[in-house]
Amino acid sequence: MDLTEPDVASIDVDVARLQDAVRDATRVVPEGARTQWEVGGAPRAGTLVRAPAGVVRYEPADLTVTVAAGTPFEHLAAVLREHGQECPLDPRDARATVGGLLSAGLSGHRRLRLGPLRNWVLEVRFVTAEGRLVKGGGPTVKNVSGYDLPRLLVGSLGTIGVLTQVTLRAEPLPAASQWATTARPPSDVRAELFRPSSILFDGRRTRVLLEGEPADVEAQLRAGALEPAEPPAWPPGANRGRISIAPDRVERLGARLTNAGARWLAEVGVGTVHVAGDTPETLTAAREAAAEHGGWLLREAGAPALDPFGVPLPNFGLQQRVKAAFDPHGKMNPGRIPAIDPDPAREIA
């Protein structure tokens, strides 16, 4: 696939077919590269649908890029890199599709400096339960024309519509980029650094990603007494989850996680704690620890018996109304956010 010469006409044909498929299906299961297939509840059986792939429009001077939602992230990254740019969605697995990444809505490890995934999305196009093609947002870097459908779609796990195309903001690649490490506590390190891209802490060592002008990276290494290091590894284990917690509670939570036998890596200043263990029980214990500190754990992989979210959806009535407004019969990716699916008994009644 030559991604610099998009075949927009064929993408349009694929989208039209996708609209037909969604309209005619009784249950729709959107599929990307299945790199985050276990995020949320297990998908129920239904008609598998895929978005087309390809770069639709890329204007480096505008710092915007439009891609079909089935485009693998690694292809997008390669196209942007040729012009010295990136879109920091930062997936764990670069084979992930852009649409899949946005549907799962999980931000990458540079959220501290670059913000959450949702901030990079300018426009979405998606197919609704009735098979209509809907656009939300707009292609410019700044826009307040109408309601923010892009933010509704990000993280909705395919339960509102099937993403077909998105416009993303791009950024110049940093001139220099360096991981570094220290034994000093992360809060001390954070106080000394200006706009670090990431500060990770595993209970023993603090790891920092510095990006920007080469002189600044050097100066920050000195200021924080940091030693250059290799990028850190994610905590290994078949059972994985991510905890969301107020950032100032991360270090206290970490001690509890260690006691619970979990391996973990916290994003300092963000409040995301990546957890892994050899058994499902580790995630259960980590979830309890998170709850004690006012947080919650999203199951990301393994532990199939574990509830995907483990907490009731906040503002459940409002969430239900939003779901029902777009998908009253619950045909869009049922099971993925189990609580939001319409009650079949009620529907019959």
Binding site: G105, R118, D148, R151, P314, N315, V322, K323
Partner: peptide
Amino acid sequence: LARLGGLEPDQPGYDLRGCFVGS
């Protein structure tokens, strides 16, 4: 009354905070 969003980086379900801002 409702609280939308939170100090935690992510909340389960839809981004109601994101929908509300700019409405």
